[in-house]
Design a protein around this nucleic acid. Sequence first.
DNA 1: TGGGATGCAATGCAATTGCATTGCATAGAG
DNA 2: CTCTATGCAATGCAATTGCATTGCATCCCA
Lengths: 198, 198
Amino acid sequence: MIEVMPKKVDHQERRTLIADALMRVAADQGLEAVSLRHVAAEAGVSAGMVQHYFRTKDEMMAFALAVVRERGQLRVTEAMERLGPDPSPRLLLRTMIAALLPLDDRTRDDGRVALAYFAYTAVRPAVASSLRADTAQLTEFIASALPARNANAAAAAAGLLALMEGLGIYLLGGQYTAEQALAALDAHLDLLFGVDSA
Amino acid sequence: MIEVMPKKVDHQERRTLIADALMRVAADQGLEAVSLRHVAAEAGVSAGMVQHYFRTKDEMMAFALAVVRERGQLRVTEAMERLGPDPSPRLLLRTMIAALLPLDDRTRDDGRVALAYFAYTAVRPAVASSLRADTAQLTEFIASALPARNANAAAAAAGLLALMEGLGIYLLGGQYTAEQALAALDAHLDLLFGVDSA
DNA sequence: TGGGATGCAATGCAATTGCATTGCATAGAG
DNA sequence: CTCTATGCAATGCAATTGCATTGCATCCCA
């Protein structure tokens, strides 16, 4: 080690523990209910400790957002690995998108937090850049998996990703059921992959 | 008049004035910055007056949400009237959706507020019912305008609406430009209306 | 055995919050 | 004119906020 390490506690682990508590608070009381004391109470630690690991509230928020994004990516890679080798592009895309949708209670919480952060970053442009990078990466991947029949692959990919985001919103708001969302997704994939529906 | 009317101020007008101020605050500082005093200052009135017209903050928030929804509907009907008689279903849908997207600075503010409210209602289910009604009405209308070639009109309509919502999110977040969003919309309409793209 | 860095709790503080209360000016009804 | 309902401002208040500060206790390294 180059730096000294006078204590043994795992810094990153503590921060994640606190971020998890933050997300639990945000998921069922909204991001505006997130305060140092609330998060500390939810995490079962003292408020002082939260301050120790995050110098400002914004730093804590940014870290929690990073955790949410990582978890999303993890869900995607896990789902794709579960597919086995050489899946069809269509199944690949369906699996990836389904993994990102808040379809069950576990993922609903993450979705709520992500939604809250969308509103949050709309006002704090500095935090938004990482979200932008995620989106760009996803569209690129989607475009590469789309069949050649789509003339404008970039637009089609952007559309599919937007569809995913919108389905997520409506799932969280209770406008769509999981079945409805998946049906809409499949119908859209039918169009993209050229399944004639008549 | 059945009721007495001892004073002449227009109750509804004042409430709208205050709600407008609320939306200005929310649009550029986020919903969590909305407080009685902030809104009052933005509206150029005393905090006491805000309290006079809205007994609680939640009542004020709900009213402002209703105003946003009304403005959206107004934009849609105006855009559709501008189309003239008997537009093609495709143009009808494109116009309607474009009217709902935050494509310029004016509509961006409304979009930001709407987004903030999505996160807000995700935690306050009581306020969400009106949003649900809006969505149902829109999907029904969209489904009726889609060509018969789409086997599952309900799913296709739900998908188109979700696409719209997602485009809105990404427009607000700066992930998509207006051109990209419209290109994605048009590509999707191409698919729905069967324009072969090869 | 120091000694210095670190982990963490406790407390304080100014600012802000939503809301209740009070006071008063005014305008229409009688 | 009087009276009462209303419009609205001002103030107070307890609760909560983010953050700075302080004080120990603990552990690593020399």
